[in-house]
Design a protein around this nucleic acid. Sequence first.
DNA 1: ATGCCTCAGCTCCTGAGA
Length: 275
Amino acid sequence: MKIATWNVNSLTVRLPQVLDWLAAQASAGAPVEVLALQELKLSDDKFPAAAFEQAGYHAVWHGQKTYNGVALLARSPFNAVQRNLPGFEDEQARLIAATLGADDTQGSEGGASAPALRVVGAYFPNGQALGSDKFAYKLRWLEALRAWLADEMRRHPRLLLLGDFNITFDDADVWDPEGLRESIHCSSVERAHLQALLALGLHDAHRLFAQPPKSYTWWDYRQLGFQKNRGLRIDHILLSDALRPLATACQIDRSPRKNPQPSDHAPLWVQLQGL
DNA sequence: ATGCCTCAGCTCCTGAGA
């Protein structure tokens, strides 16, 4: 089962590329079972559910006009959909969680049905600059996420957290670690929050496998950033303890970044066996 | 250069992204 995440920077602009990419993966014999999308930049009524349905995908979404917005697509239907963090007042649409397979929160016996998979798609706040109001919001959001996930993981042992985290793990995720030291996406305080998520029992799927050096998921549109591979690895897939042994591969797909009118982010996918 | 692209929208400029 292939599970992917992609910050599309406007689903209105990128819908054809998303449909093309899904079709290309299927043609290559490895169809995408689940896709998390971020930065839809459209309101709920503008979400192209019919186009995805025609492509064979169920969808759930949490849209917002102009900014943010997240969605999950899957080839099977979702249950127990959650939008944003419970108890955290937020005008910004940044998180959507849903269950694939039998709802495992009801304590049912299961029997023949496969264990459920809890999918959490998120668009973490950017933060703009250390010390700014937006940075303070980023830190509050990160703490609310961690607190909620601690409980969520107890209820759903098979859980993935994937999306645009807007945080690098370490200097290997940064094209210019010295020039960007302690700047936004690279600061110690942001990285400590990312480590706090791992401490809940989550694992960076990308680092479970050998990867090419200078593997990034985002490149600035300006100054030929992609061509010069001046990027950051800020999009991630984290796997719970129960899912970690099922992972067989994890890759960044740079090919859509070469399209005309690309997103500034590339999709990232993980392959899980036995699901 | 508080710049350089790209996107949305109170659209021919501005705010936000990362």
